[in-house]
Design a protein around this nucleic acid. Sequence first.
DNA 1: TTGCCATACCTTTCGCCGCTAGGTATACGA
DNA 2: TCGTATACCTAGCGGCGAAAGGTATGGCAA
Lengths: 113, 113
Amino acid sequence: MATSKNPPFLNSVPELLILQCLKDRQMYGYELVQAIRSATHDHIVLAEGVVYPVLHMLEREGALSTERRTVNGRSRIYYALTDRGTARLADLASVWRRLTAAIAGVLGEPSHA
Amino acid sequence: MATSKNPPFLNSVPELLILQCLKDRQMYGYELVQAIRSATHDHIVLAEGVVYPVLHMLEREGALSTERRTVNGRSRIYYALTDRGTARLADLASVWRRLTAAIAGVLGEPSHA
DNA sequence: TTGCCATACCTTTCGCCGCTAGGTATACGA
DNA sequence: TCGTATACCTAGCGGCGAAAGGTATGGCAA
């Protein structure tokens, strides 16, 4: 009942992954691409064209705060979760778990519940 | 290595669910909508506007065979998996499991592996 | 010193997939 | 006879990710 509609279907997975990574520590865009790539053993490779727009959108909505730093003569923009971002992460993760559990059920897997 | 690219991101979940349902027994479109709805306890509700086009596409590609039957004065189109459809189901399910496992890893869940 | 690769940021364009919102027709119960 | 459930269908829109490109600096090798 509480769940009004299907979230347009399983979208915003990139957003979920990015938020989750930033929960552990602040990171910059280029770093996120590689972190996700290596964390998933190359199973998920987010192109930069996906990551940067998401970061900008999240910043616009107040889910992320930014800090410009120069390291080794290179300028980086570090992103960190705000309270709002933490809440958003919790929301997305919850929806994600609910949907995957539902699908696992159809696929005939126990889904460890 | 075998996995060339990200499948456009987590698309074709409706297709996966439909194929999986048809693996157990043949069903008709209207029935599929409700079967998925109830199997997922209303967490996933595929509109008919999603289901029918997928069925037509799968039939066009030889993944489903059809049989028209009249029950209680109502005309129904029953769909059944072909060999090709079974293979397609196996493919989609495998991709699905790989991706969800990867995401579960990022989310810090054991994902029962 | 020149050129290439890695780093680090960014945007525009395109295509697809699912969603919305309709539409048709029959059966059945109030 | 009128509404609701059954059962099928389609056209059009929108959003999100993918592809493809563009800028700039640093470092290394030829």
